[in-house]
């Protein structure tokens, strides 16, 4: 029987979660987008209100089930719907956004408990070469919330980048993390 792994994407509205699932899924993705009715409409037309779902074939390694959650904290309860059997969580950040660090702080505040108990990766999206200052801010925010996670740069529309995230999470699951020690940080990967 084919092994399946459940990967969850969280992150602020506009981080690229829906686009990621739609771009890399081998099946037509399930989407639950509706028109924005608040100030978010200035940035994007639609927003996810339940979840995104797609699947990615990993060949002999199995199959990746991709879930994307809404970015707004009011939909936090959806995590409980998808939490069972998670391989890991991807925190997606729009690295081109001026408010990237602020947005990340909100996401970490919403999901800190879950991120501490599940392998996670922080993925800076939409920027080919995110500034070092943002990377440092992200590391600092992770530490502030008692989290240990690799920070990587991705193009979430690319299949190979999503596979790389999967492999990283698998490594974290196998070998774990011991938590931050002094000023130690997981290296920029």
């Amino acid at each position: 029987m084919t092994k399946t792994y459940k990967l969850l994407f969280v992150g602020e509205p506009g981080a690229g979660k829906t686009t990621c699932v739609a771009a890399v899924s081998d099946i037509p993705p399930l989407t639950t987008d509706v028109g924005c009715t608040d100030e978010l409409a200035d940035l994007k037309e639609t927003t996810t209100v339940a979840l995104d779902y797609g699947e990615l074939d990993l060949g002999p390694q199995g199959r990746l089930l991709l879930y994307g959650l809404p970015g707004q904290a009011r939909f936090r309860y959806m995590f409980d719907v998808v939490r069972e059997g998670l391989l890991g969580i991807v925190v997606l950040v729009d690295a081109t956004c001026e408010r990237a660090a602020t947005n990340l702080r909100e996401t970490l505040q919403t999901y800190a408990g879950e991120l501490r108990s599940t392998p996670c990766v922080l993925a800076l999206n939409k920027h080919p070469d995110p500034p070092a200052s943002l990377q440092q801010q992200c590391q600092a925010l992770l530490t502030e919330h008692g989290l240990v996670a690799p920070v990587i740069s991705v193009d979430a529309r690319k299949r190979e980048d999503v596979v790389r995230i999967f492999e990283l999470l698998f490594l974290l699951l196998e070998h774990g993390t011991d938590g931050p020690q002094d000023d130690e940080e997981i290296a920029w990967l």
């Binding site: 639950t32 509706v34 209100v49 339940a50 809404p70 707004q72």
Partner: peptide, 21 residues
């Protein structure tokens, strides 16, 4: 109220999506 409203919108969106699929 915020949570109730969010859950209601999720249910309607999922209902639309499931029927469409």
């Amino acid at each position: 109220p915020g949570k109730f409203a969010a859950m209601a919108s999720s249910l309607v969106a999922l209902g639309h999506s499931v029927l469409r699929e």
